[in-house]
């Protein structure tokens, strides 16, 4: 595996996460600059690791759980950088880079475990299509999760009227809600397609829709149901705010369990 670069990427991640706390709590502009530089560095290193991995396996490196986590961490970081630059929301640095770092760490640890490659079939492309959609969808839901967490923290502080000064360093409630909702709007269709393509792949491989233990499919469908309900309530009824944030977090938790239920 071309993962020699990953330890360096992880070091960049961890220092950046530390600086993120310094930057947010200590209002240090220098820490912010350091944070964004290191995250950009981690982004580049991880991209290089992915490309190298692709060269080594001679194809698109998204065929097993290690590769999946590697790509997922990278996409989450990409989305975080996008939100930072386009929406000027820096506070998500307390949540998204740690998530991305954990995923990358997982990729590094799984690398030790020998995982059989996906059987060479004519539908290999279909499988890669499935994993790509799932990666992008889960990463978008990560962003929704982060914004929901910040929203809940803010809501609580505003209600209890304490820790109000910390708030000034966070995006407004409105911004959290808006960005989080947009992330769900992107994540949900990707999740839907990811599930459908996954079911089709099962059918192709085993002749059944649901695989051996079915946990992955179950959690995927649960996540899908939560977000479907959330979107319906939001679009039809204007359901938003705290409960919407809780639902997003629940849906995200299910989506994460899909990863744990993966067989390879």
């Amino acid at each position: 595996m071309g993962l020699l670069l990953l330890p360096f990427a992880l070091i960049a991640y961890f220092v950046a996460i530390f600086l993120s706390f310094v930057g947010t709590l200590g209002r240090s502009a220098a820490a912010r600059r350091g944070e964004i530089s290191l995250l950009s560095l981690a982004w580049l290193l991880q991209l290089a690791a992915i490309v190298r991995q692709g060269q080594l396996v001679g194809g698109f490196p998204l065929t097993n759980m290690g590769e999946y986590l590697l790509a997922l961490g990278w996409v989450v970081l990409t989305f975080h950088l996008l939100v930072w630059f386009r929406q000027h929301v820096e506070a998500a640095g307390l949540i998204l880079p740690p998530l991305a770092a954990l995923m990358t760490l997982g990729a590094l640890l799984l690398h030790a475990r020998a995982i059989p490659p996906v059987p060479e079939t004519q539908q290999r492309g279909w499988f890669l299509f499935h994993t790509t959609l799932a990666t992008l969808g889960t990463a978008a839901l990560c962003v929704a999760f982060a914004m929901s967490l910040i929203y809940l923290f803010q809501d609580r502080a505003l209600k209890t009227k304490r820790k109000l000064r910390v708030l000034e360093r966070l995006p407004s409630l409105d911004a959290c809600d808006r960005i989080g909702f947009h992330a769900v709007l992107w994540g949900f269709p990707l999740l839907t397609l990811g599930i459908v393509t996954g079911l089709v792949w099962n059918w192709h491989l085993h002749g059944v829709l649901v695989g051996n233990n079915g946990a992955k499919e179950l959690f995927g469908l649960l996540a899908w149901a939560v977000f479907a309900l959330l979107l319906y309530a939001r679009l039809a009824r204007g359901f938003r705010g705290r409960k919407s944030a809780y639902m997003t977090i629940a849906g995200f938790a299910f989506a994460l369990m899909v990863v744990l239920g993966m067989s390879r």
Partner: peptide, 9 residues
């Protein structure tokens, strides 16, 4: 005003 900004941006 500061609180309003914190809520509404």
């Amino acid at each position: 005003v500061t609180l309003a900004r914190q809520i509404f941006g």
